[in-house]
Amino acid sequence: MPRTIVVTGASSGVGRAAAEQFAAQGDHVVVVGRNPDRLAGAVDAVRAAGDGREPGRFQADFEKLDDVRALAAHLLDTYETIDVLANNAGGMVERYRRTVDGFEATMQGNHLAPFLLTSLLRERLRGGRVVNTSSAAHRAGDPDPHDFAGAPGSYRSFPAYGVTKSANILFAQEAARRWPEVLSVSFHPGVVRTNFGAGKAVRFLYRYAPFLVSPEKAGGLLVWLANADALVDGGYYVGHRATKPSVDPARAADLWDASAKAVRV
């Protein structure tokens, strides 16, 4: 029986490449994205990769927690089991922006929204796994569990992004401790050739630098993590190897409790 795989951020880049590869191996893929035109294109590509099998789809903006709750409700109503949740949606915000929910946009889109989604889907994920797309950029900073709103005057896009990538790793570590029935990992996909980034200089880097990884290769790593046996629960993967990240594991429990309070779950 085909597995059910939910991929957020699946309308472009790593998520779309992974969604196509999941479909090609016979999985039923649910494609989640924010932009309706890119989402439609991704659905077409995933359908083609799956020899015409119709994927699921849902449009959601993770800067709106109501969208995340609507996505979770749709998935709970539609699927008895979710075998893999790929928390891949995220991005880098060029200038400080506060969401309608009151949080800094990078922190909400990259950490609080996937935290909420995964928490709401926990029972459907029993016996399955969660794969969180993090980054080597996590070295840029540690999350402050007591401040998810930040301040406009001190905001810098790359450090803010790095803080959220640390949060992704800490979330996977703490999920492994609290939810032993769900395998949780995070990974660094490499510096991927996409339209990712904030500002012209960063976008130029992510499109043209010679050392970049293709979305297909990075998506392949996500698929490997969704398939592989004997993974380290809570592990942070660089390539096919669990690697020690530059995070303070003592922060994981506080971050979890603060995140649960922030999103009311």
Rank of each mutant, 00 (worst) to 15 (best):
L255H: 04
S12E: 15
A252Y: 00
V6K: 05
Q173N: 02
V29H: 07
F187H: 13
T99V: 07
D67S: 00
M92N: 14
G239P: 11
T194V: 12
P159S: 06
Q173C: 01
A160M: 05
D66T: 08
D257Q: 13
S214W: 08
R241G: 08
T133I: 09
E174C: 06
L116Y: 04
A105E: 12
A72G: 04
F171S: 07
S259L: 00
G197W: 13
V7G: 05
R177G: 09
R57N: 05
A86Y: 11
Y96L: 08
S214E: 11
V238W: 13
A172R: 08
S12F: 13
R97S: 14
G26E: 03
A10V: 11
V46H: 00
R57A: 14
F171D: 05
A253P: 00
V182C: 14
G219M: 13
G26S: 05
A140S: 07
E63Y: 05
D229Q: 14
S12N: 15
S214K: 11
V46D: 00
E80G: 15
G150W: 03
I5H: 07
D144F: 03
Q108G: 00
S119M: 14
L65P: 02
D142V: 00
V130P: 03
K165M: 08
A45L: 03
M107S: 02
H74W: 11
V7M: 04
D67T: 02
G50C: 03
A172V: 10
D142H: 09
A73E: 13
Q21M: 10
E216D: 15
A151V: 10
A253T: 07
L231M: 03
E104K: 03
R57S: 14
K64M: 03
D27M: 09
R264A: 12
T194R: 11
A17Q: 09
D257W: 00
A253K: 07
P145V: 10
R57F: 06
F148Y: 01
V30M: 04
N195C: 09
H188V: 11
G15R: 01
V30A: 04
G41S: 15
F187E: 10
M92V: 14
S154A: 06
P143S: 07
E123T: 15
L183Q: 13
Y206K: 13
D67E: 03
T243I: 07
A160D: 09
A209Q: 10
N110G: 01
L117M: 14
R47E: 10
P210D: 07
P245V: 07
V14P: 05
F158H: 08
N227S: 13
D37V: 15
Y237S: 11
S186H: 08
R95K: 12
K64S: 12
Y161H: 11
M92K: 05
V238G: 14
P210F: 08
F103T: 00
